[in-house]
Every structure is written in C-alpha cells, then in structure tokens.
Amino acid sequence: ADPCYDEAGEPRCCVPGLVNAALGREVLASSTCGSPANRVCDSSDPQRAHSADLLTSAPGTASPLCWRSDLLQRAPFNITLTVPLGKAFELVFVSLRFCSAPPTSAALLKSQDHGRSWVPLGFFSSSCGLDYGRPPAPADGPAGPGPEALCFPAPQAQPDGGGLLAFSVQDGSPQGLDLDNSPVLQDWVTATDIRIVLTRPAAQGDTRDGGVTAPYSYSAAELQVGGRCKCNGHASRCLLDTQGRLTCDCQHGTEGPDCSRCKPFYCDRPWQRATGQEAHACLACSCNGHARRCRFNMELYRLSGRRSGGVCLNCRHNTAGRHCHYCREGFYRDPGRTLSDRRACRACDCHPVGAAGKTCNQTTGQCPCKDGVTGLTCNRCAPGFQQSRSPVAPCVKTL
C-alpha cells in the first residue's frame, strides 16, 4: 500500500518515519583533543582518536566510544558542536549523552537556512538568570501563545559519572498547538542544522594544586536528533538524489527537497501543506493534452470559487483557450473526434474566391460565403447561380 494514496487512489497526507537525523552525519566540533597528541588522546591514532564523528556513529560500532574536547585551561569554556542534517527535518527531540560530568550550562540552537542564521531552542543551566538572563522554565510551558526558547535545569550528573542533556520540542511549546494547523509550531520544529554550545564544565570553579584552575574538558557520545524528514505531508520517505543530497520522494504533484512547491504542470491551485484532513495535492492543469506548461492565475482561481486557477500555455494542435478547449482562428472542431485528439481541430480551408474571409464557424466549420456562393468552404455556386469571370462576385444569377 502506498502511504500517500488510499485504496481508491486518492491522495492522502503521508510523512516519513521518525529517525535519528544525526546518525552518520558529520559533526563539527570547535575543539577536539589529540592535536597535539597526549597520553590519552591522539587524533592520528584510530585507537586513541576521540573524534567528533563518534557522536553520531551507530551505537557500539566505534572504539573509543566518546568524543573529547581539548583541555580547557581557562575561561571561556565554550565548545560548539554543530550537526548539519543535510535538509530540513521536523524535530521531535534532541539528546546528548555525556561520558563525563555534564556541563552546568549549555544552549541548544537550530538553523533553518543551512547554518547562515541560528535561533535558540532552549537553554540548560543551573543559573538561568546569570547565564542567559532568563527565568527558569515554567512548569506548564511558555506563557505566550507561541513556542519559545526556555531555560531548563542543567543535566544531572548520573552515578556512572555521565549525564544526559535531553530536549523535546514540546518543552518549549504551549499545550494545545496542533502541527497541522499551527504555522508557528511548524516553524518551531523545522531545522536544517543543530548546534549545542557547551558553556560551563561541571567542575568549573574548583581549584587544585594550590589555587591553580584545573584544566577541564567535555566528553560526550550519542548525539541524537529525533525527527522526521520534512516533506510537508507529501512524501513518505526521503532518498539520496543523484548528487548525494537527501531529498523527499515527493508525491501529490509536488517537487523540491521538502515538496514545498507544485510541479510545473501541476498549478491548477496553490501549493499547500497536507493535513490529516486534506491532502491538498497539487492538481494538474486541464489542457486536454494540448499543452505541456501552464501558469497559475490567482484572479481566475478566486473567480472559480477557489477551485481552478490554471491557464494553459502554448496550446498546440491548433487549439486555444485557457484549457486549450477550443480551436484557434482559422480552424474548427471536428465533431467526429474527441477534444483531446491531436486532430480535433481542422483547418477551415475557406475557398480563396468563394469565401468572404478565412475564418469559419468554430463549431460547424462553415466559411462566410459571398453572395450566390454555397458549400462548407464556399466552393460552389448556389442553385440558381452560375460562375462568373469576376473574382469579386464569383457567382451571378442564372439568366
């Protein structure tokens, strides 16, 4: 069964499955240990390289298991982890498991334009006001009508020495918003890139060896970005295109990496995101098989009661009109052929002398005849008339 069409072949809303969008993606870390090599970390030795790609490799497939930052001798202790997802995803959650004590301050950001600009999704801190100038997140979500980046408690250190930073898109979103019908929620969950900024190690402020600030580092594994490939309800899966880029397998007459526009000939109504109630498929223009291109006209769409706004371009086979549904001047409909037949329109073929013009009746094919002339193409004298020698009055009354 095709998830994008029902048993009757009618389009229906379809979405790709929930995946870890970060799995296998390259992670850009602002700091990674091992250059230069030290006792525990050597970037040139696969057995001792704690590279950032360990954050997104399949669980249990890599050794060592954890990424480690370089040793941080003094403030600022900011380390940035950036994961380009390759295309837009609709986020559900983000999590990062720490292999050592989790930071006491971190920020989670997203980009919707492949890293050109960033907006925060949430903050995590033991001192929200001091670190981010924000109050701790209210228990019942944001106070405003839309989603917003709230400041949550910093991840708790676990008995094994690690910790988990976890964020759900619902955490920053008011209750009751519905993804189908809330453009602000759709915007909130959409991301092409995820960035985690670790800003304060757990032990910062401790001193050892007579007041000298100890060097600190971050160590983490399993960066997960749970989400669905964003296809706006018009695809059930994403595939790699010929250039190796992740892209939606668009259905419903849509195209683009996110199925966010109608295919060129499918512009009989404006593009819309599919919802659970309505697939909002892009409809092909009705051109009776005589045109390959069409354009959308909003005025016609409104006048039609929001049903059809497509206008066929370059009607072929001697047809004309918004839907290539009548014959162009100098041609008439052959009643023996269907409108979609390539030869549905026949040339008028009006007689150069007997006809008063070259344009015939588009329905009957009758040419306009001069006085005393008859026939569909005006090629004979009417009864009671005979041919003259004058091309101006080719038929005269019989004496």
């Binding site: 090629n379 020698r389 091309p391 101006v392």
Partner: peptide, 23 residues
C-alpha cells in the same frame, strides 16, 4: 442539384491582380 466547384481558370484577374491567390 449539386453545382460544380468553382473553376479558378475561368476567373479574369485583369483588374484584381492584387487579390489573386497564390496557387
């Protein structure tokens, strides 16, 4: 009664040269 089709050869184009269709 079916009349014959117009015979182009019978027309005199002397005064209507500019109207004469190309054959």
């Amino acid at each position: 009664e079916v009349m014959p089709t117009l015979d182009m050869a019978l027309f005199d184009w002397t005064d209507y040269e500019d109207l004469k269709p190309e054959v």
